[in-house]
Amino acid sequence: MGTTAQMGPGYFPFWLGALLSLIGLILTFSSISKKTNAEKIPKFDVKIVLWITGSILLYAVLLPTLGFIFAIFVLVFVSSSVSHEFGWKGTLVNATVLVIFTYLAFVVGLSLTFPLWPIFIH
């Protein structure tokens, strides 16, 4: 913590935390007070969140092992499948176009380094 004149690392976060708790308290009390109209918490679409987040996590897992090209294919396919208009053909075309475009833009154009192919091919 330290003193006000010689602040330690905990000083600033401590007071921020105190402020945030205060705001939390105000919000809690104002929401249980009778004057407030009951608000409905909107429905969460868990399926969309899981598929989209899952596709990103899969990409993160696959990139270092199976490489850029494969990881992007998986990312596009998994994320597309949650759309209510999903189709195999369209997604395949989309994924191929995206892989070629990102390869040209990032790897060739901006010369960023990626693990391109699966490690066992090297």
Partner: peptide, 10 residues
């Protein structure tokens, strides 16, 4: 949206 995801991830 998959394209946006791809660009974000890269």
């Amino acid at each position: 949206y998959p394209a946006i995801l791809v660009f974000c991830c890269i």
